[in-house]
C-alpha cells in the first residue's frame, strides 16, 4: 500500500511537472533546454550511482555495529 501511494504520488508529480512545462510554452528555447537537461540527467544518474555506494556502506556499518552488540 505504501508503495502504491508512493507510486501514485510520483506519477502525480511527473504529470504536474509535464503540465507545467507544457503550459510554459510550446515554442521554447529547446536547444538550450537540451544542453541543460542532458547535463542534469547525466549528473543525476552519476549521483544516483554514488548514492548507492553510500547506502551500501551505511548498511554495512549498521550490520557491523549490530554484530558487535551481540
Amino acid at each position: 500500500m505504501k508503495t502504491f501511494l508512493q507510486f501514485a504520488l510520483f506519477m502525480l508529480i511527473a504529470f504536474v511537472v509535464i503540465l507545467m512545462a507544457i503550459t510554459l510554452g510550446e515554442v521554447g528555447a529547446w536547444y538550450f533546454a537540451w544542453l541543460i537537461g542532458t547535463t542534469m540527467i547525466v549528473l543525476i544518474a552519476a549521483a544516483g550511482g554514488m548514492l548507492l555506494d553510500a547506502q551500501d556502506e551505511q548498511a554495512a556499518r549498521k550490520a557491523a555495529a549490530a554484530a558487535r552488540h551481540d
Binding site: A14, V17, I18, A21, I22, E26, V27, G28, W30, G37, M40, I41, V42, I44, A45, A46, G48, G49, L51, L52, D53
Partner: peptide
Amino acid sequence: ARRSFRMAALFGVLATAGVITLGDA
C-alpha cells in the same frame, strides 16, 4: 547490475518526462 539499474532508473525517469513534454510541444 544493481548499480547499472539504479543509474538507468534515474536516467530514464527524467528522460521520459522530457520526451512526453517535448512530444506535446
